[in-house]
């Protein structure tokens, strides 16, 4: 298949069902929002090695946050409800609660049985001085801290999201492939309800399941490493010297497909040798997103 003259392999990205939530973080100044978001989403690239996959979804102005201050929305993904709740509690407790002037609000509506409790667990930091405020159906916790009060919503909505949508960009000139990857990541990041959890939205260390070392669950995807392209089993073709992967997590399948579509079309304007996607033979993930379905502009 060709898109704008670039070869697109007839394959599919294999994505997984994961539990997801959205957090709205606000602070008195944008610089503090950025600081909190940076800390909150740090070490949140892949559940292979992290407790959750996390990244900034969007930046919010004061007219669109619950408390009228600058803010940002973050999406957080994990395997199941229990691990998602634990990750949210730990991350909010260590990185948002500790950041000056911040507050943390739920960004998802969900039924009662599809909620995780964050503020309701963090309240104990108040050591008995915490105060609950319930307005309508929403409960907020006011936890005394040294610059006033940390306000955190009691429950956060949870949905079944889709994680692991991906594209693999392959080319000859590493700088050009990097340009293509960054541009494609930027295009995908403009989709609502979607994050690219890796740094800059681009992955250079694509992995495969398992390792020659028994203690490792995953190891480098050697077939895509240019320095190993002279060995048997390589997926690299002559003239290909660099590979980058884009990984996307969405609150549903739709945003993942749209993110992949935008990334694919943006990348196809660069002189790549080919664009493909990663999968495990279709045996692990419930969602198979075929690249041929993304060639048309939506």
């Amino acid at each position: 298949m060709k898109l704008n003259g670039i070869e697109v392999e007839d394959t599919f990205a294999e994505a997984f069902a994961m539990r997801a939530t959205r957090l709205i973080i606000t602070a008195s100044r944008p610089v503090l929002v950025d600081a909190a978001v940076s800390a909150m989403t740090g070490y949140g690239t892949s559940v292979i090695g992290c407790d959750a996959e996390a990244s900034r979804e969007s930046t919010l102005d004061q007219s669109s946050t619950p408390d009228g201050r600058p803010g940002a929305s973050i999406l957080l993904f994990s395997f199941d409800k229990k691990s998602l709740e634990k990750a949210a509690i730990n991350r909010v407790g260590q990185t948002v609660l500790t950041c000056a002037t911040t507050a943390c609000f739920n960004g998802l509506n969900a039924s009662d049985n599809a909620q995780i409790r964050v503020g309701g667990n963090l309240r104990y930091f108040g050591d008995g001085h915490q105060i609950s405020k319930k307005f309508g159906e929403k409960r907020f916790w006011r936890i005394p801290v040294m610059d006033g009060e940390f306000i955190c919503e009691d429950h956060f909505g949870m949905v079944s999201g889709v994680a692991g949508g991906n594209l693999i960009l392959v080319g000859g000139d590493p700088d050009m492939v990097l340009d293509a990857a960054l541009s494609a990541a930027s295009a995908a990041a403009s989709v609502e309800n979607l994050i690219l959890p890796f740094p800059g939205g681009v992955v250079r260390s694509g992995s495969r399941v398992g390792s020659t070392y028994q203690k490792l669950r995953a190891s480098t995807n050697s077939s895509w490493c240019p320095t190993l392209s002279n060995l048997p089993g390589t997926a690299m073709k002559p003239g290909e010297n660099c590979v980058y992967e884009l990984v996307m997590d969405g609150l549903s399948r739709g945003p993942v497909e749209e993110g992949m579509r935008r990334a694919l079309h943006t990348a196809s304007h660069f002189p790549l040798t080919r664009i493909t996607a990663g999968n495990y033979g279709g045996k692990l993930g419930a969602h198979h997103i075929h690249l041929k379905t993304l060639l048309d502009i939506a």
């Binding site: 408390d67 405020k133 307005f135 309508g136 907020f140 006033g148 009060e149 306000i151």
Partner: peptide, 11 residues
């Protein structure tokens, strides 16, 4: 500076 009053007023 009770930030929660903004939430209250919004409610």
């Amino acid at each position: 500076q009770p930030g929660w009053i903004f939430l209250f007023a919004n409610h």
